[in-house]
């Protein structure tokens, strides 16, 4: 099925992002996207401000982590009959105009997951520190090895996911750090789903800090690589099985 603006839900997981979420929502509204904000146990006015900005808000009573918020969003998308979702951060890093590029790429290639990569873009305004870049390189290398697909940005949270992969992720999706990005890539790739990367010019975050320190990043990287090597990533039905069950 062709992906359009109308059958795509933009999911914005947000934890205490009252200072930036309204700008992000206003920008998304300018482009006419259907938007769902998943307030991940926020204790500030994220949910109220998002509602006031015209977004549908799914309010998790406790904090589940990005992966948990995303799975709740995926479930909402599947139950409302959306064909695809686009993950967008609430901190303003992902420009709304780039979403069209993800949709166009998915329609042209038929990919089940299209990832906006920060490292094949020429016009990105985002700078990444040396140590963080090294961690990202290691993860990209590991994801490429695990999936047999060339991945340049395994930790990009700017991505489009379409059915039937979306349906699988609505049932099983990791909550841990890197689970929503790196591990999701590994699970999808090993499940035989088609993954594509396109350049995406991401911006520096408007508010707040990165959710993990360098030490944490290294720890999570080692954990992520271990998960891939030991094949203990979250399980999903393979594309072959899903296709068979539909026939």
């Amino acid at each position: 099925m062709l992906i359009t603006k109308e059958n795509t839900l933009v999911i914005v997981p947000a934890l205490n992002e009252q200072d930036s979420v309204v700008d992000v929502l206003n920008e998304l509204r300018e482009f006419g996207f259907h938007v769902l904000v998943v307030s991940d146990g926020s204790t500030d006015d994220t949910a109220t401000q998002s509602r006031a900005a015209g977004a549908t808000v799914l309010e998790l009573p406790i904090n589940l982590g990005v992966g948990g918020a995303l799975r709740a969003g995926f479930q909402h998308a599947v139950s409302r009959g959306y064909e695809a979702i686009v993950q967008v951060d609430a901190d303003g890093q992902h420009p709304a105009n780039e979403i069209i590029n993800l949709i166009t790429a998915a329609n042209e290639s038929g990919a089940h997951m299209v990832v906006g990569s920060r490292f094949i873009s020429h016009d990105t305004t985002m700078s990444v520190g040396t140590s963080r870049r090294l961690v990202m390189r290691v993860l990209a290398w590991s994801a490429s090895r695990a999936t047999h697909i060339v991945i340049t940005d395994a930790t990009s949270g700017f991505r489009l996911i379409r059915m039937p992969l979306l349906g699988e992720f609505a049932q099983s999706f990791a909550v841990n750090y890197l689970g929503d990005t790196y591990e999701a890539l590994v699970s999808a790739g090993r499940g035989g789903y088609k993954i594509q990367e396109i350049p995406a010019g991401l911006r520096p975050r408007q508010m707040g800090e990165s959710s993990a320190s360098i030490a944490q990043s290294v720890r999570f990287t080692l954990k992520g690589i271990g998960i891939a090597m030991l094949h203990i990533h979250f399980p999903i039905s393979s594309l072959q099985d899903v296709t068979k069950s539909r026939i």
Binding site: L58, E59, P61, I62, L64, R71, A72, Q75, H76
Partner: peptide
């Protein structure tokens, strides 16, 4: 189970 319960509450609330 906690995760599923949290998701259900959020969907029901919406």
């Amino acid at each position: 189970q906690n995760r599923q319960l949290t998701e259900h509450i959020a969907h029901l609330r919406l």
